Simulated assay, not measured.
Amino acid sequence: MANITLKIDGQAVSVPSGTTVMDAAWELGIEIPALCQDKSLPVVSACRLCIVEVGGSRKLQTSCSLLARDGMDVRTETDRIVRYRRAILQLLLDSHPNDCLTCDKAGECLLQKYAWRYGVRFREHEGTRRPEHLDLSSPYIAKDDSKCILCGKCVRVCYQVEEERQVLAFAGRGYGTRIVADDDRTLEESKCVSCNRCVSVCPVGALTDRRAARKGRAWDLTKEVRRCRVCDYGCSFEVLKRNGRCVAVKAQPPGPGRPLCLKGRLTTELLNVPEPDAPYRKVDGKFQETSWTRALGLQGLLERLSEADGQAER
């Protein structure tokens, strides 16, 4: 594939044809802000934060979808762009609950990161805010619609799995749009299998890992990446340590051919966390606390091993 050369903020870069402007900027160490972009997901250009100016055009364009062309002259931080980004971030904060001090996503939230970067603050207003709608029916995932920015990353990653496991979708219209599970059921009532794909890609605190909640702030924790041993996919998990002690496990975003599953996550947790929380499994549409043997599907295997050992001793 032939290479092309363009300039971004005055720096020349050579990239393969078909590269987006955002990825070309990364080659130069330039981070163009984005809330909805993910290299493993289809491009939707929903958040509009990644807008750039291209020489010779008055139109602002989204760098996540704009393909680099030979001779391009791109600007990523002009006064006009910064003004637009601040306006977008302000609209998001105006609909967002002001609980960053206690949110489990603090320190890792992209909305928080970019609001700080561009000096955007919460403000009092009499306009509409996203309604409070907290779903704590699952012991594995907390879903808070009031923090959702409708980037759609959770929906797109959920639709990468086989059809019978696809759960999340957009519902409603306009300002009333929400992310729902199945036909607007709770996570417990839905066919969600708690794989945590959605949690791993959520850029804000709308979807969080309940088993890792309150185990430590992002800046108090160190992370070690471990590969799951349950199957050949080898999904990646972060083992979270506080003061040198393993306290929780969180799923990393799924890579190509790595689907993520609850069994793998629980196995990784059991092998690494000295005092893990009790596991749960869904029985007839309801979560029930269970044993680790049943949670990991080992009941039949252990019973058969016991039988085999008994036969060997006779």
Rank of each mutant, 00 (worst) to 15 (best):
R130Y: 05
G205C: 03
K263T: 15
R281L: 09
V204D: 00
Q112E: 15
L305S: 12
A169K: 14
T268H: 09
C228V: 08
D70Q: 08
R178N: 12
I30H: 01
L260P: 00
P16M: 05
L111V: 11
G255Q: 12
R123C: 07
T128H: 14
R86A: 05
R86H: 12
Y159W: 15
E162W: 12
L91R: 12
C231Y: 04
L66S: 06
V43W: 04
R242Y: 02
K223Y: 15
A308M: 12
V249Q: 05
V21F: 02
L134Y: 13
P279W: 11
G300A: 09
P139L: 07
P279C: 10
C195Q: 01
E126W: 11
Y233Q: 12
E189W: 11
E313H: 12
R227M: 11
R117W: 13
L92F: 12
L49A: 10
L91V: 08
F237T: 07
P254L: 09
C47Y: 04
A25Y: 01
D9Q: 06
D38Q: 14
V273Q: 11
K143A: 13
C154W: 07
R226N: 10
V239I: 04
G10F: 00
I32A: 01
L168F: 02
L207Q: 06
K223I: 11
T20F: 01
V82L: 10
G174S: 06
V201I: 08
S95Q: 13
G205W: 00
Q252L: 14
Y233R: 08
D104A: 11
Y159K: 13
C100L: 09
K215R: 14
P253G: 01
I30D: 00
P256E: 03
S194H: 04
D70S: 13
G10S: 03
Q112P: 11
E126R: 08
L49N: 07
N272F: 03
L111N: 10
G10L: 00
A142N: 13
D94G: 02
P139V: 06
V44P: 10
K282Q: 05
A34Y: 00
D184R: 13
K250F: 04
E124D: 11
M72I: 07
V230F: 15
G174V: 07
E31H: 06
A115R: 05
G152V: 05
R123I: 06
T78F: 11
R185P: 09
D182G: 04
Y84N: 08
D94K: 00
V201W: 00
E303I: 13
L89K: 02
Q299F: 10
E132V: 08
E126D: 10
W116N: 11
E275I: 04
C198L: 03
G172S: 12
D277Y: 10
L136V: 08
L93F: 03
E189G: 02
G234N: 08
R242T: 03
I81E: 04
L136T: 09
